[in-house]
């Protein structure tokens, strides 16, 4: 993961996470309202159940530096990777 050399880089990094967060929030709100109006309760539940954790993870990854990758984690669980 990048070690930020200056403030600008940090801002850039935050910026695109922020962008993703906003984009998907907007999508989410619009579509959730649509589903609500169409009275598709089951779909709405699934929708929110998938979207909200996604948004939380987006925020989480934006604020963390040097997270291990999923492959590394899996590798350390199962001993797949040689690292």
């Amino acid at each position: 993961m990048p070690s930020f050399q200056n403030r600008q880089e940090l801002v850039n990094e935050l910026e695109y996470h922020y962008f993703i967060f906003l984009l998907f929030s907007i999508f989410g709100i619009v579509e959730a309202i649509q589903l609500y109006h169409q009275k598709q309760r089951k779909e709405l539940t699934i929708y929110l159940f998938l979207l909200l954790p996604g948004l939380v993870i987006t925020v989480y990854t934006a604020t963390q530096v040097g997270l291990p990758s999923i492959a590394e984690e899996l590798g350390s669980w199962f001993g797949w990777m040689s690292q």
Binding site: E15, F19, L22, L23, I26, I33, Q34
Partner: peptide
Amino acid sequence: MKKSICVLFVFWHLFVLWSM
């Protein structure tokens, strides 16, 4: 339906202008 798409477009353009 139509309205929400319009709203989406307005927001979309705002984001594009603002962030890209």
